[in-house]
Amino acid sequence: METSSLVSNLYVFVLATFLGFEVIRRVSPLLHTPLMSLTNAISAISLVGSLVILGKQGGEINLFSILGALAVTASMINVVSGFLITDRMLKMFKSRTGGKTEGGAR
């Protein structure tokens, strides 16, 4: 990696971390479980890296395509189950006024 792209990547990392702190500090403890499953689904973005490894092999079966295939499967499980279960949980949070996840400041 060139030094310039390394430095800009470090900037991105540091800024994203601070942004993460600011955004996530505001999440109500009420929703900490859905928060964890959503961030889990989001970090399954490692699917992107897995796809490149698998796709690069052009359908050949070798060490790399096996590692890539396992990684794609593992990440895809997280993508699908992470988003679905987060939504399933959030659907259950109902306000006293009856609206599903509408309204309801404390």
């Binding site: 991105v12 994203a16 993460g20 961030t39 989001i42 973005i45």
Partner: peptide, 12 residues
């Protein structure tokens, strides 16, 4: 994108 998504999850 990986750096950002990972950092968000890491800070969370």
């Amino acid at each position: 994108l990986l750096i950002i998504a990972g950092a968000l999850d890491g800070s969370s």
